[in-house]
Amino acid sequence: DVEPGKFYKGVVTRIEKYGAFINLNEQVRGLLRPRDMISLRAENLNVGDEIIVQAIDVRPEKREIDFKYIP
């Protein structure tokens, strides 16, 4: 289970104008929005990159997770 405030290692699987999709594993995926990329620009991300993200909002009923990148 993903808990708000905890840090996780994930892999960038898709990049859109509104953010990057980060997979923690095959069943868990969330969104890293540009406003939550402190000191990281979306254009510096590539599909396949491994990054550490913090879960900031977890909505299990919608199967949605928002992440924040903190260097």
Rank of each mutant, 00 (worst) to 15 (best):
V2F: 10
E3D: 06
E3T: 13
P4V: 15
P4L: 14
P4C: 13
P4R: 12
G5K: 04
G5Y: 05
K6R: 13
K6L: 07
F7K: 05
F7C: 13
K9H: 11
K9F: 09
K9Q: 08
K9L: 11
K9P: 03
V11M: 07
V11C: 08
V11D: 00
V12G: 00
V12Q: 00
V12S: 00
T13R: 03
T13A: 08
R14G: 07
R14N: 04
R14T: 06
I15A: 01
I15C: 05
I15Y: 01
I15W: 02
E16A: 13
E16Y: 10
E16Q: 06
K17P: 14
K17W: 15
Y18R: 07
Y18C: 09
Y18A: 07
G19E: 06
G19D: 03
G19I: 10
G19T: 08
G19A: 05
A20T: 07
A20I: 15
A20E: 01
A20M: 09
A20C: 08
F21S: 03
F21P: 00
I22R: 00
I22L: 03
I22E: 01
N23Y: 12
N23H: 12
N23P: 00
L24F: 05
L24C: 08
N25V: 08
N25S: 14
N25Y: 08
N25Q: 06
N25F: 09
N25M: 07
E26V: 12
E26L: 11
Q27I: 12
Q27A: 12
Q27P: 04
V28D: 05
V28I: 14
V28Q: 06
R29A: 10
R29V: 14
R29C: 13
R29T: 13
R29N: 08
G30K: 02
G30W: 03
G30E: 03
G30S: 11
L31Y: 03
L31K: 06
L31N: 04
L31W: 04
L32G: 03
L32K: 02
L32N: 02
R33A: 07
R33M: 07
R33E: 04
P34R: 15
P34L: 15
R35Y: 07
R35C: 11
D36Q: 06
D36M: 06
D36T: 02
M37T: 06
M37K: 03
M37H: 04
M37S: 05
M37E: 04
I38H: 13
I38V: 13
I38K: 11
I38F: 05
I38G: 15
I38E: 12
S39W: 14
S39E: 13
L40Y: 04
L40R: 05
L40N: 07
L40M: 11
R41L: 14
R41S: 13
R41M: 12
A42V: 15
A42P: 15
A42N: 10
A42K: 14
E43M: 12
E43I: 11
E43G: 11
E43F: 11
E43Q: 10
N44S: 14
N44L: 13
N44H: 14
N44E: 15
L45S: 00
L45G: 01
L45R: 02
N46G: 09
N46I: 09
N46M: 13
N46E: 11
N46W: 10
V47R: 02
V47G: 01
V47M: 04
V47S: 01
V47A: 03
G48P: 00
G48A: 01
G48D: 01
D49Q: 10
D49W: 06
D49R: 03
E50W: 15
E50C: 15
E50M: 14
I51G: 00
I51W: 01
I52P: 01
I52K: 03
V53K: 00
V53P: 00
V53N: 00
V53S: 00
V53T: 00
V53L: 07
Q54E: 05
Q54T: 05
Q54M: 15
Q54W: 09
Q54C: 12
A55P: 02
A55T: 05
A55C: 14
A55Q: 02
I56D: 02
D57E: 14
D57L: 11
D57M: 13
V58D: 02
V58T: 06
V58M: 05
R59Y: 05
R59Q: 04
P60V: 11
P60E: 07
P60T: 09
E61A: 11
E61Y: 04
E61H: 11
K62R: 11
K62N: 08
K62A: 10
K62D: 07
K62V: 10
K62S: 11
R63S: 11
E64S: 07
E64F: 13
E64D: 04
I65T: 03
D66C: 11
F67Q: 05
F67N: 03
F67T: 04
F67K: 02
F67W: 08
F67M: 04
K68W: 06
K68P: 04
K68C: 12
K68D: 03
Y69Q: 08
Y69N: 03
I70S: 09
I70C: 09
I70K: 06
I70H: 09
I70A: 09
P71G: 14
P71Q: 10
P71Y: 09
P71V: 09
P71T: 11
